[in-house]
C-alpha cells in the first residue's frame, strides 16, 4: 500500500529580521545575521522553507559578573575581566552574535551602579573587538535599563543592535531609542501568547517596523518551567504560520541565563545529591538540552553562556538543517 508523507502547507510566514549593519549599511559589522523567514514548523524542511538557520548568541558582560557559576569563570578564564577580550573569545567559540549584558548593582561585586558613560565605553570596546552583530541587554532594572540603553543606542547609532529587554514597563523608551538610532528591540513578555501579541502591537504602533523586532516569550529552564515556554512558543509559531500577523516575529530565548542560575549549574559535587552526577557534565547538558528543546519549538536566536554548549548546540543546528539527509 502506498504511503504518502503528509505535508502541511501554511499560508503564513515568519518575518525576516536582520541584526547588525555593515559599513555599506551604516554600521561597522563585518557581517550581518538574518533570522526568521520560516514557512513551516521547525526543521520540517520537506514541507516548507527555513531559509536561515537559528543563530547562537554568546552572552558576555561589561565587567566580571559576581554571580556566575564557577564553571563559567573556569571556561572563559581571564576574558571575563574585559568585555573586548571576552567578545573575541566568544567569537572564537563559534558565536554568530554577541550578547553584551550590562551588569547592575546586583551583579556587581562592589554593588556599584553603572553609568551611561561606562555603558557607552563597554559597547564601543566590544564593537571594536568583534565584527559580529551585537545584542545589548541592560541590568534588568527598568529605570537603569532606560538610562543605559538610550546612551548605548546613541553611541552605536546605525549598528542595528538588538536592545533589550523591552517589556511593557519600558517599551516606550527603548523603542524610541531604537527608532532614533537605527536599532532593533527584543520584546519580552512572561510566557503568554496574548501578552506577546499585545507587546508586538504596542511596539508597531510606535512606528518601529516589525522587521526590527524579535519576540522573546521568556524562557523557563529545563525542570523550571520549560514546558510553559515550549508550549507558548509552539502556539505562537503555529499562529504565525496560520497567518496571525502579530505573532510572525523570529523568537529569541535565553537558555544560557536560565540554566546557569540554577542550583544544578551553580553548586558543585558534594553540595548536591549524588544522583545529579558530574557537575560540569550536568550543567552543560542542562544548558544544551534547554536550548535544543526550545529550538524544536521555534527558537530563532538562542543565547548561551558556556563555550562547550555553543559547540554542541551549533552541531545540533547544523544537523537539523540537513533535514532528511541528516543521518544518511
Amino acid at each position: 500500500m502506498p504511503v504518502t508523507i503528509p505535508q502541511t502547507k501554511y499560508a503564513g510566514k515568519v518575518r525576516e529580521v536582520t541584526i547588525g549593519a555593515t559599513r555599506a549599511e551604516g554600521g561597522t559589522r563585518s557581517r550581518t545575521v538574518t533570522v526568521g523567514g520560516e514557512t513551516t514548523l521547525p526543521f520540517l524542511l520537506h514541507e516548507g522553507e527555513m531559509p536561515h538557520p537559528p543563530a547562537v548568541a554568546v552572552e558576555i558582560c561589561d565587567r566580571r559578573p559576581a554571580d556566575w557559576s564557577p564553571l563559567l569563570y573556569e571556561a572563559w578564564g581571564e576574558a571575563v575581566n574585559d568585555p573586548a577580550t571576552w567578545a573575541r573569545a566568544a567569537e572564537a567559540a563559534g558565536a554568530d552574535l554577541v550578547l553584551l549584558h550590562l551588569t547592575g548593582p546586583v551583579q556587581r561585586a562592589d554593588g556599584s551602579t553603572p553609568t551611561a558613560q561606562e555603558a557607552r565605553q563597554a559597547v564601543r570596546r566590544v564593537l571594536e573587538a568583534t565584527g559580529l552583530p551585537l545584542l545589548v541587554f541592560g541590568p534588568g532594572i527598568a529605570d537603569l535599563d532606560n538610562e543605559l540603553l538610550v546612551a548605548v543606542a546613541e553611541e552605536a547609532a546605525g549598528e542595528r543592535l538588538v536592545l533589550g529587554v523591552c517589556e511593557d514597563k519600558n517599551y516606550r523608551t527603548l523603542v524610541a531609542a531604537a527608532l532614533a538610532h537605527g536599532h532593533l528591540v527584543d520584546g519580552r513578555t512572561p510566557m503568554d501568547v496574548n501578552l506577546a501579541k499585545q507587546l508586538m502591537i504596542l511596539i508597531r504602533d510606535m512606528g518601529l517596523p516589525l522587521e526590527r523586532v524579535l519576540m522573546d516569550p521568556s524562557t523557563g529552564a529545563l525542570g523550571y518551567g520549560i514546558e510553559y515556554g515550549y508550549s507558548v512558543m509552539e502556539r505562537l509559531r503555529l499562529a504565525a504560520l496560520n497567518g496571525d500577523a502579530m505573532t510572525q516575529q523570529p523568537m529569541l530565548v535565553t537558555p544560557g541565563e536560565e540554566a546557569w542560575r540554577l542550583k544544578e549549574a551553580k553548586v558543585g559535587d558534594g553540595g548536591v545529591p549524588a544522583a545529579w552526577g558530574d557537575w560540569a557534565e550536568r550543567a552543560i547538558t542542562w544548558e544544551v538540552l534547554t536550548a535544543t528543546t526550545l529550538l524544536h519549538a521555534g527558537a530563532d536566536v538562542v543565547c548561551l553562556r558556556h563555550p562547550a554548549s555553543v559547540a554542541e548546540v551549533k552541531a545540533v543546528i547544523a544537523r537539523l538543517m540537513a533535514g532528511g539527509k541528516d543521518g544518511k
Binding site: I5, L44, R319, K328
Partner: peptide
C-alpha cells in the same frame, strides 16, 4: 538515526 531525518520520520 540523525537529528533531521528522525524528526521528519517521527513527525510523519
Amino acid at each position: 538515526r540523525g537529528f533531521g531525518d528522525s524528526l521528519l520520520a517521527l513527525t510523519a
